[in-house]
Protein backbone atom coordinates (compact mmCIF):
# COMPACT_ATOMS: atom_id res chain seq x y z
CA UNK A 1 0.00 0.00 0.00
CA UNK A 2 1.58 3.29 -1.11
CA UNK A 3 1.54 6.13 1.41
CA UNK A 4 -0.50 9.10 0.30
CA UNK A 5 0.48 11.25 3.26
CA UNK A 6 3.99 11.39 4.66
CA UNK A 7 4.63 13.72 7.57
CA UNK A 8 8.15 14.12 8.89
CA UNK A 9 9.22 16.01 12.02
CA UNK A 10 6.36 18.47 11.65
CA UNK A 11 6.44 21.52 13.94
CA UNK A 12 4.18 24.55 14.27
CA UNK A 13 4.87 27.45 16.59
CA UNK A 14 2.61 30.43 17.25
CA UNK A 15 4.96 32.93 18.87
CA UNK A 16 6.08 31.29 22.09
CA UNK A 17 3.56 28.45 21.91
CA UNK A 18 4.51 25.20 20.23
CA UNK A 19 1.25 23.71 18.97
CA UNK A 20 2.78 20.79 17.07
CA UNK A 21 6.09 19.50 18.31
CA UNK A 22 7.91 17.27 15.86
CA UNK A 23 5.36 14.66 14.81
CA UNK A 24 5.86 12.07 12.05
CA UNK A 25 3.30 9.69 10.60
CA UNK A 26 2.10 8.21 7.34
CA UNK A 27 -1.32 7.45 5.92
CA UNK A 28 -1.69 4.66 3.37
CA UNK A 29 -3.91 4.74 0.30
CA UNK A 30 -7.42 3.62 1.18
CA UNK A 31 -6.77 3.96 4.88
CA UNK A 32 -9.22 5.61 7.32
CA UNK A 33 -6.83 7.40 9.64
CA UNK A 34 -7.76 9.01 12.96
CA UNK A 35 -6.08 11.93 14.67
CA UNK A 36 -7.24 12.07 18.28
CA UNK A 37 -6.33 14.24 21.21
CA UNK A 38 -7.80 16.56 23.84
CA UNK A 39 -8.56 20.21 23.07
CA UNK A 40 -5.39 22.13 22.29
CA UNK A 41 -3.42 18.98 21.51
CA UNK A 42 -2.60 20.27 18.02
CA UNK A 43 -5.11 18.28 15.94
CA UNK A 44 -6.64 21.11 13.95
CA UNK A 45 -3.26 22.78 13.53
CA UNK A 46 -1.87 19.53 12.07
CA UNK A 47 -4.86 19.10 9.77
CA UNK A 48 -4.58 22.70 8.55
CA UNK A 49 -0.96 22.11 7.63
CA UNK A 50 -1.95 18.90 5.81
CA UNK A 51 -4.21 20.74 3.40
CA UNK A 52 -1.90 23.68 2.94
CA UNK A 53 -3.88 26.22 4.97
CA UNK A 54 -1.03 26.96 7.39
CA UNK A 55 2.65 26.75 6.52
CA UNK A 56 4.65 24.47 8.88
CA UNK A 57 7.32 26.09 11.06
CA UNK A 58 9.52 23.05 10.40
CA UNK A 59 9.28 19.60 8.87
CA UNK A 60 8.06 18.12 5.63
CA UNK A 61 4.57 17.16 4.44
CA UNK A 62 4.22 15.12 1.30
CA UNK A 63 0.78 14.35 -0.11
CA UNK A 64 0.46 12.06 -3.15
CA UNK A 65 4.27 12.14 -3.16
CA UNK A 66 4.37 15.94 -3.68
CA UNK A 67 5.64 18.59 -1.28
CA UNK A 68 2.76 20.69 0.05
CA UNK A 69 4.88 23.85 0.25
CA UNK A 70 5.62 23.71 -3.48
CA UNK A 71 2.85 21.71 -5.18
CA UNK A 72 -0.02 22.98 -3.00
CA UNK A 73 -2.25 23.78 -5.94
CA UNK A 74 -1.98 20.34 -7.49
CA UNK A 75 -2.44 18.66 -4.11
CA UNK A 76 -5.45 20.78 -3.17
CA UNK A 77 -7.12 19.91 -6.46
CA UNK A 78 -7.11 16.26 -5.37
CA UNK A 79 -8.25 16.56 -1.74
CA UNK A 80 -11.55 17.38 -0.10
CA UNK A 81 -11.73 19.20 3.20
CA UNK A 82 -14.57 19.38 5.71
CA UNK A 83 -13.56 22.14 8.11
CA UNK A 84 -14.65 22.42 11.71
CA UNK A 85 -16.32 25.80 11.15
CA UNK A 86 -19.29 26.18 8.88
CA UNK A 87 -17.83 27.93 5.82
CA UNK A 88 -20.89 27.55 3.58
CA UNK A 89 -22.33 30.64 1.92
CA UNK A 90 -25.42 31.55 3.98
CA UNK A 91 -26.94 33.73 1.24
CA UNK A 92 -26.85 31.03 -1.41
CA UNK A 93 -28.95 27.94 -1.95
CA UNK A 94 -27.80 24.41 -1.23
CA UNK A 95 -27.18 23.72 -4.91
CA UNK A 96 -25.49 27.07 -5.59
CA UNK A 97 -23.07 26.34 -2.78
CA UNK A 98 -21.97 23.16 -4.51
CA UNK A 99 -21.82 24.60 -8.02
CA UNK A 100 -19.86 27.72 -7.08
CA UNK A 101 -17.45 25.62 -5.04
CA UNK A 102 -16.97 23.34 -8.06
CA UNK A 103 -15.92 26.49 -9.92
CA UNK A 104 -12.97 26.95 -7.57
CA UNK A 105 -11.73 23.58 -8.89
CA UNK A 106 -12.36 24.69 -12.49
CA UNK A 107 -15.00 21.98 -12.94
CA UNK A 108 -17.18 22.85 -15.95
CA UNK A 109 -20.72 24.04 -15.11
CA UNK A 110 -22.53 21.09 -16.69
CA UNK A 111 -20.32 18.57 -14.91
CA UNK A 112 -20.74 20.51 -11.64
CA UNK A 113 -24.53 20.31 -11.93
CA UNK A 114 -24.41 16.56 -12.47
CA UNK A 115 -22.07 16.02 -9.53
CA UNK A 116 -24.11 18.30 -7.28
CA UNK A 117 -27.28 16.32 -8.05
CA UNK A 118 -25.48 13.05 -7.37
CA UNK A 119 -24.03 14.27 -4.05
CA UNK A 120 -27.30 15.80 -2.87
CA UNK A 121 -28.90 12.43 -3.49
CA UNK A 122 -26.15 10.61 -1.61
CA UNK A 123 -26.47 12.90 1.41
CA UNK A 124 -30.29 12.91 1.39
CA UNK A 125 -30.49 16.62 0.56
CA UNK A 126 -32.08 16.38 -2.91
CA UNK A 127 -35.40 17.78 -1.68
CA UNK A 128 -33.64 20.80 -0.13
CA UNK A 129 -31.57 21.77 -3.16
CA UNK A 130 -33.26 25.16 -3.53
CA UNK A 131 -33.33 25.91 0.20
CA UNK A 132 -31.13 28.66 1.59
CA UNK A 133 -28.30 27.44 3.78
CA UNK A 134 -29.56 29.73 6.55
CA UNK A 135 -32.72 27.62 6.80
CA UNK A 136 -30.97 24.25 7.17
CA UNK A 137 -30.62 22.27 10.39
CA UNK A 138 -27.21 21.53 11.90
CA UNK A 139 -27.22 17.99 10.52
CA UNK A 140 -28.08 19.16 7.02
CA UNK A 141 -25.37 21.83 7.13
CA UNK A 142 -22.83 19.19 8.04
CA UNK A 143 -24.00 16.85 5.28
CA UNK A 144 -23.85 19.71 2.78
CA UNK A 145 -20.32 20.53 3.94
CA UNK A 146 -19.38 16.90 3.34
CA UNK A 147 -21.04 16.94 -0.07
CA UNK A 148 -19.12 20.10 -0.94
CA UNK A 149 -15.85 18.47 0.14
CA UNK A 150 -16.52 15.67 -2.37
CA UNK A 151 -17.41 17.87 -5.36
CA UNK A 152 -13.93 17.51 -6.88
CA UNK A 153 -14.02 13.69 -6.51
CA UNK A 154 -11.07 13.78 -4.09
CA UNK A 155 -8.67 10.91 -3.51
CA UNK A 156 -8.18 12.07 0.06
CA UNK A 157 -10.86 13.43 2.37
CA UNK A 158 -9.87 15.46 5.42
CA UNK A 159 -12.50 15.74 8.15
CA UNK A 160 -12.08 18.05 11.12
CA UNK A 161 -14.65 17.01 13.75
CA UNK A 162 -17.39 16.21 11.23
CA UNK A 163 -20.03 15.23 13.80
CA UNK A 164 -19.45 17.73 16.61
CA UNK A 165 -22.75 19.21 17.75
CA UNK A 166 -24.96 16.76 15.84
CA UNK A 167 -27.82 14.79 17.34
CA UNK A 168 -27.45 10.97 17.44
CA UNK A 169 -29.64 10.48 14.35
CA UNK A 170 -27.58 12.88 12.24
CA UNK A 171 -24.35 11.45 13.59
CA UNK A 172 -25.31 7.91 12.61
CA UNK A 173 -26.35 9.14 9.18
CA UNK A 174 -22.95 10.78 8.68
CA UNK A 175 -21.16 7.62 9.89
CA UNK A 176 -23.17 5.52 7.49
CA UNK A 177 -22.15 7.75 4.55
CA UNK A 178 -18.53 7.82 5.64
CA UNK A 179 -18.48 4.01 5.80
CA UNK A 180 -19.83 3.87 2.25
CA UNK A 181 -17.11 6.25 1.10
CA UNK A 182 -14.49 4.18 2.89
CA UNK A 183 -15.78 1.03 1.16
CA UNK A 184 -15.36 2.81 -2.18
CA UNK A 185 -11.62 3.10 -1.45
CA UNK A 186 -11.41 6.77 -0.44
CA UNK A 187 -8.56 7.64 1.93
CA UNK A 188 -9.72 9.65 4.94
CA UNK A 189 -8.08 11.61 7.74
CA UNK A 190 -10.43 12.27 10.64
CA UNK A 191 -10.20 14.24 13.85
CA UNK A 192 -12.89 13.71 16.45
CA UNK A 193 -13.69 13.89 20.14
CA UNK A 194 -15.98 10.88 19.92
CA UNK A 195 -14.11 7.67 20.66
CA UNK A 196 -17.07 5.63 19.49
CA UNK A 197 -16.75 7.34 16.11
CA UNK A 198 -13.01 6.70 15.92
CA UNK A 199 -13.41 3.00 16.92
CA UNK A 200 -16.10 2.47 14.39
CA UNK A 201 -14.48 4.22 11.42
CA UNK A 202 -10.71 4.24 11.81
CA UNK A 203 -8.39 1.53 10.55
CA UNK A 204 -5.55 3.18 12.38
CA UNK A 205 -5.16 6.19 14.61
CA UNK A 206 -2.73 8.27 16.57
CA UNK A 207 -3.41 10.00 19.86
CA UNK A 208 -1.60 13.31 20.23
CA UNK A 209 -1.17 15.50 23.27
CA UNK A 210 0.90 18.66 23.79
CA UNK A 211 1.85 18.48 20.12
CA UNK A 212 3.43 15.03 20.36
CA UNK A 213 2.26 11.57 19.31
CA UNK A 214 1.53 9.33 22.30
CA UNK A 215 0.49 6.11 20.52
CA UNK A 216 -0.13 4.75 17.04
CA UNK A 217 -2.19 1.66 16.15
CA UNK A 218 -5.62 0.27 15.30
CA UNK A 219 -8.41 0.92 17.81
CA UNK A 220 -8.43 -2.79 18.82
CA UNK A 221 -4.65 -2.97 19.24
CA UNK A 222 -4.56 0.16 21.35
CA UNK A 223 -7.41 -1.02 23.55
CA UNK A 224 -5.75 -4.37 24.14
CA UNK A 225 -2.35 -2.83 24.75
CA UNK A 226 -3.36 -0.04 27.11
CA UNK A 227 -6.56 -1.21 28.77
CA UNK A 228 -7.15 -4.90 28.25
CA UNK A 229 -10.19 -6.77 27.13
CA UNK A 230 -12.33 -6.07 30.16
CA UNK A 231 -12.83 -3.35 32.72
CA UNK A 232 -14.52 -3.50 36.09
CA UNK A 233 -15.97 -0.22 37.31
CA UNK A 234 -16.51 -0.16 41.04
CA UNK A 235 -18.52 2.64 42.66
CA UNK A 236 -17.65 3.74 46.20
CA UNK A 237 -14.51 1.59 46.58
CA UNK A 238 -13.47 0.86 50.18
CA UNK A 239 -10.04 0.67 51.77
CA UNK A 240 -10.07 -3.17 51.74
CA UNK A 241 -10.31 -3.16 47.94
CA UNK A 242 -7.53 -0.60 47.65
CA UNK A 243 -5.30 -2.65 49.92
CA UNK A 244 -6.07 -5.81 47.94
CA UNK A 245 -5.21 -4.13 44.60
CA UNK A 246 -2.01 -2.74 46.05
CA UNK A 247 -0.98 -6.11 47.48
CA UNK A 248 -1.60 -7.90 44.18
CA UNK A 249 -0.24 -5.06 41.97
CA UNK A 250 -3.33 -4.94 39.78
CA UNK A 251 -3.57 -2.20 37.09
CA UNK A 252 -6.27 0.31 38.03
CA UNK A 253 -7.24 3.97 38.06
CA UNK A 254 -8.51 5.34 41.36
CA UNK A 255 -10.87 8.26 40.74
CA UNK A 256 -11.94 8.62 44.38
CA UNK A 257 -15.64 7.89 44.08
CA UNK A 258 -15.04 5.33 41.37
CA UNK A 259 -12.35 2.81 40.63
CA UNK A 260 -11.52 1.30 37.25
CA UNK A 261 -9.91 -2.10 37.19
CA UNK A 262 -8.20 -3.37 34.07
CA UNK A 263 -8.10 -7.16 34.12
CA UNK A 264 -7.69 -9.89 31.56
CA UNK A 265 -11.00 -11.68 30.97
CA UNK A 266 -11.91 -14.69 33.14
CA UNK A 267 -8.92 -14.02 35.31
CA UNK A 268 -8.96 -15.18 38.96
CA UNK A 269 -8.49 -11.57 40.09
CA UNK A 270 -11.72 -10.47 38.47
CA UNK A 271 -13.48 -13.44 40.07
CA UNK A 272 -11.96 -12.53 43.42
CA UNK A 273 -12.99 -8.91 43.05
CA UNK A 274 -16.47 -9.96 42.01
CA UNK A 275 -16.84 -12.25 45.01
CA UNK A 276 -15.28 -10.05 47.67
CA UNK A 277 -15.61 -6.41 46.73
CA UNK A 278 -18.63 -5.98 44.50
CA UNK A 279 -21.37 -4.95 46.86
CA UNK A 280 -23.80 -3.05 44.73
CA UNK A 281 -22.15 -0.64 42.27
CA UNK A 282 -20.13 -2.90 40.06
CA UNK A 283 -20.07 -2.86 36.25
CA UNK A 284 -18.31 -5.42 34.12
CA UNK A 285 -17.71 -4.16 30.60
CA UNK A 286 -15.21 -4.49 27.78
CA UNK A 287 -12.31 -2.09 27.43
CA UNK A 288 -12.80 0.78 24.99
CA UNK A 289 -10.87 3.42 23.13
CA UNK A 290 -12.27 5.96 25.56
CA UNK A 291 -10.43 4.15 28.39
CA UNK A 292 -7.24 4.28 26.34
CA UNK A 293 -7.70 7.97 25.63
CA UNK A 294 -8.36 8.91 29.25
CA UNK A 295 -5.54 6.73 30.58
CA UNK A 296 -3.04 8.27 28.17
CA UNK A 297 -4.09 11.91 28.21
CA UNK A 298 -5.31 12.15 31.82
CA UNK A 299 -8.65 13.12 33.23
CA UNK A 300 -8.09 16.75 34.12
CA UNK A 301 -9.95 19.35 32.12
CA UNK A 302 -8.22 21.13 29.24
CA UNK A 303 -8.52 24.71 27.94
Amino acid sequence: MADIIEVQHLCKRFGEVTAVDGISFTVGAGEFFGLLGPNGAGKTTTIRMLYGFSPPSRGVIRVFGMDISRDWRRIKARIGVCQQDNTLDPDLTVEQNLILFAGYFSIPRREARARAAELLDFFALANRRSAKVMDLSGGMIRRLTLARALINRPELLILDEPTTGLDPQSRHQVWDRLEKLKASGLSVVLTTHYMEEASRLCDRLIIVDHGKILVDGSPEELTLRHVGRSVIEIGGPDQALRDYLKAHEIAHDDLGQRLLLYTPDGNEISTAVRDNFCHDQCTFRSGSLEDVFLRLTGRELRE
Binding site: Q83, L88, D89, P90, Y104, F105
Partner: peptide, 14 residues
Protein backbone atom coordinates in the same frame (compact mmCIF):
# COMPACT_ATOMS: atom_id res chain seq x y z
CA UNK B 1 -18.22 35.94 10.19
CA UNK B 2 -19.01 33.73 7.20
CA UNK B 3 -15.48 32.28 6.93
CA UNK B 4 -15.93 32.24 3.17
CA UNK B 5 -12.20 32.71 2.58
CA UNK B 6 -11.34 29.79 4.90
CA UNK B 7 -13.55 27.55 2.77
CA UNK B 8 -11.95 28.84 -0.43
CA UNK B 9 -8.48 28.19 0.94
CA UNK B 10 -9.23 24.46 1.03
CA UNK B 11 -9.47 24.58 -2.78
CA UNK B 12 -6.82 25.29 -5.46
CA UNK B 13 -7.43 29.03 -4.96
CA UNK B 14 -4.61 31.09 -3.47
Amino acid sequence: YQKTFDGMLATPLS
